[in-house]
Design a protein around this nucleic acid. Structure first.
Lengths: 243, 243
DNA sequence: CACGTCCATTGACCTGCATCAAGGCGACGG
DNA sequence: CCGTCGCCTTGATGCAGGTCAATGGACGTG
């Protein structure tokens, strides 16, 4: 999901510094100004649909705040999450007119949006922008492929441990115990992991009873020993968890 | 996996016309010549490893002939295929130095290779090349996300039907019955689908007994009614199968 | 021809997760 | 204060697919 080093996000644009770095890490003054000139903001409440599957998509955007999900569905309603967008992640596809999956707000979420056509025009005139987007797409591709391994081969316990570890790794402070607030409901976690709500819940309590995590309400999680949790995730030495 | 319309592959390069269209659909004379000047070929036998997981990757390439797989593994040996490369597909990642997954020849396979550094240099000088690679990456991303749905939510029967349908859709002739030679062993099919060999085998015979396919040896498959097979795959109206 | 290797098939059995069903708990409104 | 709604947890049960094991066919080799 094309995560950007937020420590770089020190750009001279008060409104959404993160986004500008994310879209165009090497943009200089004038390009940055042009990007800034054509942006607009919009906010959705948790649970609202941002784009329907198959719908025409007239904008590209990046997440300023909150958390959004990408999902695809089978005709009988079974649903799989295929992407999780966090602040600084990019939404939309230059050169594509329709959305191949549904975009939904997981929490209250704010996007910084650009008209797709205008953005594409700028891409042709600003060569390194395409290179930057390519890099971000490759990051997303890596993340998608890591998730294919999770979905295809991990047990329920490993799946849940994997997701918790990923979220805990982003914890705002490094002090032990690590603490994070889950941006996802059990339903969203299940959609992400290819499980049911019940199985997610059972594995959460199992991890708690085994002393690997503690729960603080339904959404707060605490972890004394992240390495132990990562060991439960069954990853090889190379996995996304360790990068 | 960035499939290219092969009907466009009428380019004035005798050795590997497909590849040039694939890498740079809009390249004109001079650019094409520069690409051609720095290429080299290499062939692997079925089963050989092309690149190890985590290994430095000094080239980018495209598949001229045959079939290669991308796989990722857990530490205990469980393995998941995360990509299947067919002729005209692109391998390698401009801007990345190491391979995040293992690349293996599924059949005898020939790659047309470029030194990665030289290719990257050319990218900076040939703006539309980055745009083209972005488009290909987005195709791969779509394919990966479709597979996440397959891995996370489909039953074994649906998974096998999905894979067979994808392969039959590429059948060289449209005459009924459709006929295709599987480029994959049962083991590779299982790796792709997140199943075991035995389950793949059982579902193949179940589909045969239900009259949806016929088998011709271990690798040949025949299908009178592709629509019926696609119905078994459980896809929504939007799926990759119907495009 | 006998033998070994590789790949696929089939059967018997078991287990991990889905399914179905019943509460629990906190937030919010009347 | 109570009722209700959304979200989560827990229990009981069943089955899809994994695991273990045996067999068979295709092919190459001594």
């Amino acid at each position: 999901m094309s995560r950007i080093d937020l420590s770089l996000a020190t750009v001279d644009c008060a409104a959404c510094p993160i986004r500008h770095r994310a879209v165009c890490a090497s943009c200089e003054g004038e390009d940055l100004a042009r990007l800034a000139a054509m942006k607009s903001y919009r906010t959705w409440k948790a649970g609202e649909t941002i784009v329907l599957e198959g719908q025409a998509l007239s904008f590209v955007a990046s997440v300023v705040e909150g958390c959004a999900t990408l999902t695809r569905s089978l005709e009988d309603g079974r649903m799989q999450m295929v992407g999780l967008l966090m602040p600084s992640d990019f939404v939309g596809r230059p050169g594509r007119t329709t959305a191949p999956y549904e975009v939904t707000a997981a929490t209250k979420v704010t996007l910084c949006m650009f008209d797709r056509r205008a953005f594409e025009r700028m891409m042709t005139e600003t060569p390194h922008l395409a290179g930057r987007l390519l890099e971000m797409s490759l990051d997303e591709l890596d993340a998608a492929r890591d998730w294919m391994l999770v979905l295809g081969r991990k047990t329920a316990r490993e799946k849940v441990a994997t997701l918790l570890a990923i979220i805990l790794r982003r914890a705002p402070t490094a002090a032990r115990p690590l603490r994070a607030e889950l941006p996802l409901t059990r339903e969203a976690m299940a959609a992400y992991l290819g499980l049911t709500i019940e199985t997610v819940s059972r594995q959460m309590t199992a991890l708690r009873k085994d002393g690997l995590i503690r729960l603080d309400g339904a959404r707060g999680i605490l972890c004394e020993d992240l390495a132990a949790l990562i060991a439960e995730a069954g990853d090889d030495g190379d996995g996304a968890l360790l990068t």
